[in-house]
Design a protein around this nucleic acid. Structure first.
Length: 843
RNA sequence: GGAUUCUUAGCUCAGUUGGUUAGAGCAUCUGCCUUACAAGCAGGAGGUCGAAGGUUCGAGUCCCUCAGAGUCCACCA
């Protein structure tokens, strides 16, 4: 028999391995069932899974378990991401701590260290998936650097190159001076920083006139090759076409006109540094200006600046330049300013825009294709909630190309080879001597963009690809829509001709209890596995999936997690009661049903119908609330209490078992462990594991509208009775007189009324208790107090107000004619009830 | 500058296509160890749903304006 208390530690032991060994997680591409597929957003092999992963995967597991029980051949494909820059940074640091320099170590050795790292952290992640109870198909697990995924990557690269969708070009890119690699625009995060607008004096050549040029980056002046003003700017029209003297360098540079110079901003004069500013780069292109790169790869000043400044960091150089300018009287003004400065997402250092030769994906045709798909309702990705489609569409209007080369070692090496000026792009190294492969690897998102189909075997037309692609659903946070979802969309739609997934379920971020973003530096992170130790994976999963609503952030609350534990404990104890009483049940026979059996079955079927609807629409909070309410407020609070008086009855036992089974099945996607534990003890069950049992189907033959009304009325009576009893402090010796009713018996039992005092009205004070079908009067030895009178008066006032409101409503012709008939009828019934009650009170 | 979300009970949040007198958890008050559960049971108190307008027979829900908070994108010489 079950323990009196739910013990999550005990229950969650061993089940996972059993499921795994029995092969329940494995999809079967030979099966006759319709396929249903989700690919996991592959976690980076950089460390432990955090609460966000727990959230994301709990949702997916709920979906996949539901679909599996619903009769689908459900495939949840797991895997991990090599996370090029993120992992490389970790391994570099690890080696550094051991006193090893990456470059001295060499490419081969370094990659070996990365693989060791990957295997170690991969195992951790698999253990954590097990702890969460995720039903992923390990037989299909993939890693973004697997040989076949690498093949897919090379294939895309080569095809795109041949079609002109991938090209190598010298452009301005975001340079991470710490990782010494290029970044995409998406990998740059902006943060407000206190800085200043420095007004510099650019003297007109051979004149005492000068331009006041405002800049936030005085240290880049060494790379200036022009000063731009707006064509329409009257203030500077005499300067245009002449030269100004670049401070410190004492070099003449032209004053040009360009649309980029905004008359309203600053002084209207802009220094143009084509090699170190994206806008200036464009200006430089328009005017054929020289690009002078003034920094090394680590962002120290290079040989193109005067010797004095060479080797300085950007920051040191800025300070020195400012001092020197001040000395020379060329610093006109320092205007404090707060502005956004770009930082590398991974290393955190300030990004340096630099001109570099890199590989790019031409975005315009790919993006356009996605928009075409989104306009076709049979081809589009359906976002849940809908509003997130806008983020995709917005991102597809980008004007810049995607920089995909990274100066890293860990990743997919670019399949391009060079020999002198020759370049060869192909699946394998070209024949002949002297070819050297490109040193760089691809942006990690290049391979994860192929994830939904490369994992299923693409570009080979495998059985899995044919069966499971396009996938059915992708679950991820809104923070990576533009990183990942958008890229999967354009890659999939261009390469395969299909959307990568039909539905895209977007959830929010988990924040701390005050709504602050979790971060290691703030120390407000929540470790999901600590929570699992304390409350169990079932509690954590149910809490995460049913607490918030899709697309909104969730403020993590341990108190609510304990409330979930309490709910499971309640479920546990209800099961305990049921199992204690149905041990000898041989089969579930739902005939000769009593009134309460019919009542709870009706409530159950209606709940099931609604829960199924919510599950299909990914409305897990609503599904969860309904199951919770049904289980606690109807099944436990009333049915079990009432069933105690007919527990030997076969129909009661069958009903108990039937409903408990249904509750377990509805809860299983959210709390797999405890529901399996209880399912296993049921005397009658339809499968060897709840995981592979079938989800209950709504059965309209078990809906009894009449009994629902009758028992609801009995409950209504009981509530009113208890209310009066408690309000008047009638702890004992209350006497009750029932008017004739066929529905009293159960009420008398459940309310534990003293049989001797029924129908013996002999006391001072009397209280009427009426429901629709049951009418009674309670008598009690007590004087009427002032409070009693006040209470009664208040009740009368409330009733009168309500009657007035309803009469007014019902006399409104518009309402009566336009509102649905059942709503109007309900008001009529309610009105009559209120009138009856008022009459009663006024007696 | 563009987009978007949020504002509902003391706290944290639900609230489906507009439809009875707006719900939950926690906290709080009262009474109970009633044989599944005291991490429980029974009962209560607590909200003019951010503000003002509009559409409608009917608005927490739809529309407009405003206020406050958050997020994303763009700009930032």
């Amino acid at each position: 028999m079950l323990d009196t208390k739910y013990n999550h530690l005990e229950i969650e032991k061993n089940k996972y391995n059993t499921w795994k060994e029995k092969g329940y997680f494995k999809a079967d591409n030979e099966s006759k069932k319709p396929p249903y597929c989700i690919v996991i957003p592959p976690p980076n092999v950089t460390g432990k899974l955090h609460i966000g992963h727990a959230y994301d995967t709990a949702i997916q597991d709920a979906i996949i378990r539901y679909k599996r029980m619903k009769g689908f051949d459900a495939l949840w494909l797991p895997g991990m991401d090599h996370a090029a820059i993120a992992t490389e940074a970790k391994v570099v640091k690890k080696l550094k701590d051991m006193g090893i320099d990456k470059y001295e170590f060499g490419r081969e050795n370094f990659l070996e260290a990365c693989w060791d790292w990957t295997h170690e952290y991969g195992d951790n992640i698999r253990n954590q998936w097990a702890g969460l109870g995720l039903s992923v198909d390990y037989s299909r697990e993939r890693f973004t650097l697997d040989e076949d995924l690498n093949y897919a990557v090379r294939k895309v690269f080569v095809d795109y190159y041949n079609k002109g969708l991938i090209y190598k070009g010298e452009k301005i890119i975001n340079w991470d001076p710490a990782a010494k690699t290029a970044l995409s625009n998406e990998e740059v995060e902006y943060a407000s920083e206190k800085s200043a607008f420095y007004h510099l004096k650019y003297q007109l050549e051979g004149s005492d006139k000068y331009l006041d040029v405002a800049t936030t980056r005085p240290e880049t002046l060494f790379g200036d090759t022009a000063v731009a003003v707006n064509e329409k700017d009257e203030r500077y029209k005499d300067f245009v076409g002449k030269n100004v003297i670049l401070p410190i360098m004492n070099k003449p540079i032209p004053v040009i006109t360009d649309e980029h110079a905004d008359m309203e901003k600053g002084t209207g004069c802009v220094k143009i540094t084509p090699a170190h500013d994206p806008n200036d780069f464009e200006v430089g292109n328009r005017h054929n200006l020289e690009r002078i790169i003034i920094m090394n790869d680590d962002a120290t000043m290079n040989e193109n600046v005067p010797e004095k400044y060479q080797g300085m960091t950007r920051e040191e150089c800025r300070d020195t330049v400012l001092e020197d300018l001040k000395e020379q009287g060329l610093l006109l003004e320092v205007e404090p300013l707060v502005h956004e400065v770009g930082h590398s997402q991974r290393t955190g250092v300030m990004v340096e825009p630099m001109v570099k030769k890199q590989w790019f994906v031409k975005m315009a045709p790919l993006a356009e294709n996605v928009l075409k798909f989104q306009d076709d309702k049979d081809k589009k990705i359906n976002f849940v909630p809908k509003r997130f489609e806008k983020i995709l569409r917005h991102w597809m209007n980008i004007s810049y190309d995607w920089c995909i080369s990274r100066q890293l070692w860990w990743g997919h090496r670019i399949p391009a080879w060079y020999k002198g000026d020759e370049i060869y792009v192909g699946m394998e190294a070209p024949e002949g001597d002297g070819w050297v492969q490109d040193e760089d690897v691809l942006d990690t998102w290049f391979s994860s963009a192929l994830w939904p189909f490369s994992t299923l075997g693409w570009p080979n037309n495998t059985k899995d690809l044919e069966r499971y692609f396009p996938t059915d659903c992708l679950v991820t946070g809104y923070d990576i829509i533009f990183f990942w979802v958008a890229r999967m969309a354009f890659q999939s739609e261009y390469l395969t001709g299909y959307r990568p997934f039909k539905d895209c379920v977007i959830h929010g971020l988990i924040r701390d209890e005050h709504g602050t973003k979790m971060s290691k530096s703030l120390g407000n992170t929540v470790d999901p596995f600590e929570m699992i130790d304390k409350y169990g994976a079932d509690s954590l999963r149910y809490y995460l999936t049913t607490e918030g609503s899709m697309g909104l952030d969730l403020n993590f609350s341990e108190i609510k997690l304990t409330a979930t534990w309490n709910f499971i404990n309640k479920v546990w104890n209800a099961s305990r009661f049921v199992l204690m009483n149905i041990e000898d049940l041989k089969e579930i026979k739902l005939d000769n049903l009593s009134s309460i059996d019919k009542w709870i079955l009706t409530k159950y079927e209606n709940t099931l119908k609604s829960v199924t609807k919510h599950m299909d629409k990914y409305e897990f909070n609503l599904a969860g609330t309904e199951i919770y309410e049904f289980t606690w407020n109807y099944f436990c609070d009333y049915y079990i209490e009432m069933a105690k008086y007919s527990i030997d009855n076969e129909s009661t036992k069958s009903t108990l078992c039937y409903i408990l089974t249904g509750i377990m099945k509805m809860l299983h996607p959210f709390m797999p462990f405890v529901t399996e534990e209880i399912y296993q003890i049921l005397p009658v069950k339809d499968a060897e594991s709840i995981m592979i049992s079938s989800y209950p189907e709504y059965d309209k033959h078990l809906v009894f509208a009449n009994e629902e009304i009758i028992v609801d009325d009995q409950i209504d009576f009981m509530k009113k009775f208890r209310n009066i009893k408690q309000e008047n402090n009638m702890t004992k010796d209350l006497k009750i007189l029932f008017e004739d009713s066929i529905y009293n018996d159960l009420v008398i039992k459940v309310l534990r009324l003293n049989e001797n005092l029924i129908n013996e009205p002999l006391s001072i004070k009397s209280y009427p208790v009426n429901s629709n079908n049951i009418k009674a009067t309670i008598y009690f030895e007590k004087e009427e107090t002032k409070e009693d009178i006040e209470n009664k008066q208040k009740q009368i006032e409330d009733l009168k107000a309500s009657i007035l409101r309803r009469e007014k409503l019902l006399s409104n012709e518009n309402y009566v004619n336009k509102a649905p008939a059942n709503i109007v009828e309900m008001d009529r019934v309610k009105l009559q009830e209120e009138k009856n009650k008022l009459e009663e009170l006024l007696k």
